[in-house]
Design a protein around this nucleic acid. Structure first.
Lengths: 131, 131
DNA sequence: ACAACGCATCGACAAACGTCGAAACAGGAG
DNA sequence: CTCCTGTTTCGACGTTTGTCGATGCGTTGT
């Protein structure tokens, strides 16, 4: 099959090779935005997380990973978002560096998952701020 | 008093003049990011909201407004964030255009408040995504 | 009327960003 | 080993962004 590509549903029991991820267990901060003004240091940390989701393509890629069955998706499953494949890879790297996604290679494919900690921090800042 | 500036705690009962605000009652979207992949249109809308908080200075300004007593703050109360006054004004405009803040002029001063709707949309996307 | 203050706008500039094609890298299949 | 496929990295390019000083506008007080 030449063009059949990506007929694979999360196959388990394969050798797992970790790819370099910046911060494995980093839960950055924070208190809700309404409670107290952000410190200069925390603002830099949190702004970087928001910046990761501040691009439409990146946001779509992230939502595709987050909503994918099994909680993970390989690049080939989500890469048709209207930009070239190198650009997709570039955006996934940004999401990884921001601590929003993790990735691991299994054979030929690279699978991305949502890193829950960072998302939780962002949610904490916003939810309590909704009054 | 020459340098006493900004000794004013939310004085009520003053004539209120509305400044131009882009979207008064616009609640953009959305479903949580884990539920379904974002449409291309929604991704543009939501990315713009995240982008508004993607700068450290802007995030600090927003948190200062959000955490200020009375739920509002005038520019002079929050403008010492390490950048020039025109830059502060520029960032506040960005936050206004993104639907995150509203502003109104009362006498000499301009007061900013948090617009709850937009924040709620962002929180909705993130909270349910924390699993 | 005039000066002083608070805030917004304008124009300019360097840095950062999103995008692409070309090339490199990694695994699997023949 | 060699080809093919999936993914990342590399340069390059045009656009956007954050920042500033100078200027303008509206209000207050003298």
């Amino acid at each position: 099959m030449r063009f059949g590509g990506c007929q694979h549903r999360h196959m388990s029991n394969l050798e797992v090779i970790e790819l370099p991820v910046l911060e494995p267990e980093a839960v950055p901060c924070c208190t809700p935005l309404t409670e107290a003004p952000l410190s200069e240091e925390d603002s830099v940390t949190m702004a970087a997380m928001f910046k990761a989701l501040s691009d439409p393509v990146r946001l779509r890629l992230f939502s595709r990973v987050a909503s994918h069955e099994g909680g993970e998706a390989c690049v080939c499953d989500i890469q048709d978002v209207g930009v070239s494949q190198p650009t997709v890879s570039h955006h996934l790297k940004k999401l990884r560096e921001a601590g929003l996604l993790t990735s691991e290679r299994r054979g030929t494919w690279v699978y991305y998952r949502v890193a829950p900690n960072t998302l939780a921090a962002m949610a904490t800042m916003l939810t309590a701020a909704t009054r």
